[in-house]
Each structure stands twice: as C-alpha cells, then as structure tokens.
Design a protein around this nucleic acid. Sequence first.
DNA 1: TTTTTTACTTGACAATTATCAATCAATGGG
DNA 2: CCCATTGATTGATAATTGTCAAGTAAAAAA
Lengths: 236, 236
Amino acid sequence: MPDSAFAGIRGLALFAPMADKNFTALMRGAYVQNFPAQIDLIAEGDPSDFLHVVLSGAVDLFSTWNGRDTSLTTVRPISTFILAATIKDACYLMSARTLEKSRIALIPSRDVREIFDIDGNFARAIVTELAQCYRAVVRAQKDLKLRTSLERLANYLLRLQRRNGGAATFGLEFEKRRLASVLGMTAENLSRAFKGLQPYGVTVEGSRITIGNQADLERFAKPNPLIDAIPAYGPA
Amino acid sequence: MPDSAFAGIRGLALFAPMADKNFTALMRGAYVQNFPAQIDLIAEGDPSDFLHVVLSGAVDLFSTWNGRDTSLTTVRPISTFILAATIKDACYLMSARTLEKSRIALIPSRDVREIFDIDGNFARAIVTELAQCYRAVVRAQKDLKLRTSLERLANYLLRLQRRNGGAATFGLEFEKRRLASVLGMTAENLSRAFKGLQPYGVTVEGSRITIGNQADLERFAKPNPLIDAIPAYGPA
DNA sequence: TTTTTTACTTGACAATTATCAATCAATGGG
DNA sequence: CCCATTGATTGATAATTGTCAAGTAAAAAA
C-alpha cells in the first residue's frame, strides 16, 4: 500500500499527535480500499476487526430491528467510524454502507488497541474524538426527544444552510428518503413537512432548498446551540 | 476533606489505573458534598467547572427546550457524569438534579484535564469510560427511533427485571412520571402502555411490576443485545 | 429515443401519541 | 385526624405520525 494513501490519515486530529514510530506500526497492517456506492461495509453485531477511516465519499451508519431500519448518521471525509467498538473490542452497534463511491482505510482494531496502550498522545487524541462523538449523539437524542418532526426538519435546514455558508439557497446532502430516516420520520411525512414549512418561507425544488424568510423560519425553529451546534464551528 | 471520602473514588475504573501521585493531585482541589433530593446541580449551557462523581443517591440528567423537557438518563453510584464536557472544556449539554439525597464529589475540570495530559493510564481509563457512554447513547437512540412507546416500555421492563436478578416481580426505580420522560412519552401514555402490556402478562400494582408470562412478553418485546444490553453484563 | 426503474409526491385512512380535564389515590404536614 | 399537595389514572379529544395505494416525475438503462 503506497505511503501516499496514508498521508491524509496522518493529518487527522486522531493520528497527528502520535509518535512516528507508532504511526508507522499502525499503518503496517492497514490498507486502503475503494468501494462503489451502496455497498455494505459492516453489519451491526459483528466483531470490530477494523477501525475505518473515510478518505473520500460518504458512509451511512444505520441500524435495523424487527424489520425496521433507521439512519443514525453520515460519516464524511476525513473521519473515522466505529472507534468506540474498536477501543472496547466489542461488536458494532451500527451497520455501515457507502452512500457514494468511497475510499476507506481499514486499520486492524487489534493494532489500534495495542498502540493506544503504549502511546499516550494517541490515547488522548482518541479521548477528544470520542468525547465529540458522544456529544453529537447526545444532541441528536435531544433533537429527537424534544422536537416534533416539523421542528427537526426546520432546524436541520438551518444547520445545513449554515454549513453551506449561509446563503438563502442550497442543496440537500442526500436523497430525501434517507433524510427522512435521519430525521426519524417516513419519506411521506418528510414530503408533507416540507409543505408545512412553506408558511415560514421555505421553498423546495427537487433537492434545492430556499429559505425565503430567515427570521420567520428561525422564529419557528428556535435553533439552540446546545442541540444544533455544528461540531466544526459551534461549541463542540 | 477526609481521605476516606475519596476511597470509593480511587476504586473506580476511571481512577484506579492512575499513578498515586496524580490521584493525590487530582483530589487536592476536590471536595465531597451532600445534597438533598430535587436539587439542581448543573444547568445545560454552563461551563463545565467540575467533573461530578455520584458516591451515593441518584442523579437525573435532563434537558429542556422551548418549554419542554426530557430525562435522558440516570446516574447511579459509583460513576461520573459530564466527563465529555470536562475533557473538551465545553459547556454542559445536559442539566443535572438529584433524584434523592446524594453524596457527590466535585473535581475541578481543569485538574482533570491537566492530569489527563500527563497520565497515560488515566487517559486510557477515560477512553474506556467515554466509549461506554457513547455506546449507551447510541443504544438509546436506536431504542427511540426503531421502537414504539409500547415496545420501549416492554424492553425497559425486561432490562429492569434482568438488572434485579431476573425474578418475575420487581419494583420500578423511580416515579412513573420520570420513567415516562426517560422512555420518551407522556405520563398518561405510560399509564396506557402498562395496560397495553396486560395481554402479555404484565401486571402493575403501584411501583410493583410482575411479569406473569416471560415468554409472551419477550415474544412481543423482541429484546436485542445490540439495543438492550445492560452495560455491566452484556456486550459493552 | 423509448423503456424501465427509482425516487418522490399525494390522498385517504389508521395507528400512535399528546393534550386537557377530571378523578382517584397516596403522602405529608399541620 | 383531616386537609393539602402531589402523583397516577381515566376519558374525551386533538394532533402527530405512519401505512397503503396510487400517481407523477425524473433518472437510468436499453
């Protein structure tokens, strides 16, 4: 595996602080692989053999139970997933599949745990990453328990707008059926929720969203940094 | 503050592996306090000045938004809370209040971060703790998104039963109004949900629950270790 | 291009869950 | 002991959300 493939990884906050020697050791058993879209990467319940790093593309973390399924989050470059399972040497709690063509690095979990035990810097970096993941899920939990689906959609649109630079018009990140699942509703309900936001100035043309009246939508959505902070910008 | 107060803390998985010197340093600025029931300990949004350790009693972690509120989890002895906020030096995402009379140790967050930076064992212990917290929230998220309120209640009862040793009869941990909030429903809905479980052999007398037909209830609840594992016993 | 598939939307309806109001039961002062 | 308060329950109703079935639009394949 060419070293160049690991350059992006080395720059990650998770791997940057660790000793060169340990990084090299970690990458020795690692490899990078290209996957087409819609490919299952891992299944919940499986033992966590590899820590995954999304180098390009996008990965959907989802879960199923009793014939139902739900998307929990999307992993975008460059970040890792199933870090917690790797550290605890436990099974995956979520399944993963590519949303688009993706390049993914696979690092043997055993190596991660081994280096984690001897490299304090690496351990500390993992803490920071895990704390961030934890806080993200807590926010999602609050979003889900404290808001109706219409409010979740409104706040989601405001977050997406902000992530896209703040312009009134922007595009959805993925198909609506998946957005519905992420927001914890059905596709049909999402369709109606978009209509329900029309009175607040939201217009939808395919995947193109326009927020016609920022103040109106915010008055309805009541965004809150303790729920809606965007990790990279807000209070993490 | 008497050293004896910290004996229980030292035994915690989080603090056991660290160097004596560092533990002493960590406890230097710490103190233990007794709180009556129903006392607000922290408010979401506040800076995380102290890592809290519940030595006895019980603490409710909850959150509010737009006039609504929801209980996210209960912290029981001996464990910590708001560890993630402490590590990231970020504000609290949840508020906390005592459910009963409680003894709580308060360790200055700054000290935690400082020792965390120099004690690799401590850093590793924190990773384990955080990974566990993260997985617990992911499970809660799946429970909420994949199940109806009736199913959540059924599975909650099965978990509680297991935690209490598996006998057919056991008591609820706290008042139903709060249980409803934890399960993501209203108190009225919980009352009806208990009735909805009668056909599966569940009887309720005050806070006394009896599972008359284990197999029936499990057939309905379809418990799943990837959602319902009890941290201490199941796959963490 | 035409065909086929897939995503999205819409309408009608059903299930779930919440709200409001009233009642009942238990609990803790006075 | 009784009263006052709080928590739990119940009934009636409304809001929310999901399901099913059809239809439309758009994209992919032939």
